[in-house]
């Protein structure tokens, strides 16, 4: 398991390849990548704030739950913070398991929990100024399915 909270961009291809090659015993690898939506060109940047220390602890706890629940060989979470432009990759999740059902389910679980239980806050900067992205009720509701 590896988690990284970083301001620097990551190389999706290199990370995915290294993860898949290193997942000994896996028969399935699922990767998910989150990308900054440019809202039809109206977004000039997104600023991601986080809570150093708690962020790493919260993500580690979420990953431990996933490992306890599904037959995972390995898991990876990379999440960026700081100022990002539209089209940039914000984060990625990868899961490796003997069979694909566990890899898909664990990846969705990680995404649902990262969205509303990891201390990140997004602010959109556009031509009309800046606004904090509000949490959605459906994001909280998504947790109940687990």
């Amino acid at each position: 398991m590896r988690l990284s909270v970083q301001d620097a961009p990551f190389d999706l291809g290199a990370e995915s390849l290294a993860f898949a090659k290193g997942a000994a015993g896996a028969g399935a690898v699922v990767t998910f990548t989150g990308i900054v939506r440019d809202n039809g060109g109206s977004l000039s940047a997104m600023e991601i704030e986080h809570y150093p220390g708690m962020t790493e602890r919260a993500i580690a706890a979420i990953m431990e739950q996933a490992v306890a629940r599904w037959a995972l060989v390995d898991a990876l979470v990379i999440h960026r913070y700081g100022r990002l432009a539209g089209g940039e990759m914000i984060m990625m999740v990868a899961t490796a398991a003997p069979h694909r059902a566990d890899a898909f389910a664990a990846a969705e679980f990680l995404m649902d929990y990262l969205k509303s239980r990891a201390p990140f806050w997004k602010k959109e900067l556009g031509p009309d100024g800046a606004s904090w992205v509000a949490a959605k009720d459906e994001d909280e509701a998504a947790l109940t399915r687990w």
């Binding site: 809570y51 708690m54 984060m91 969205k115 806050w121 997004k122 509000a134 949490a135």
Partner: peptide, 10 residues
Amino acid sequence: IAFFPPMTGG
């Protein structure tokens, strides 16, 4: 102790 709005990660 930390105070913040609901989180918006991912």
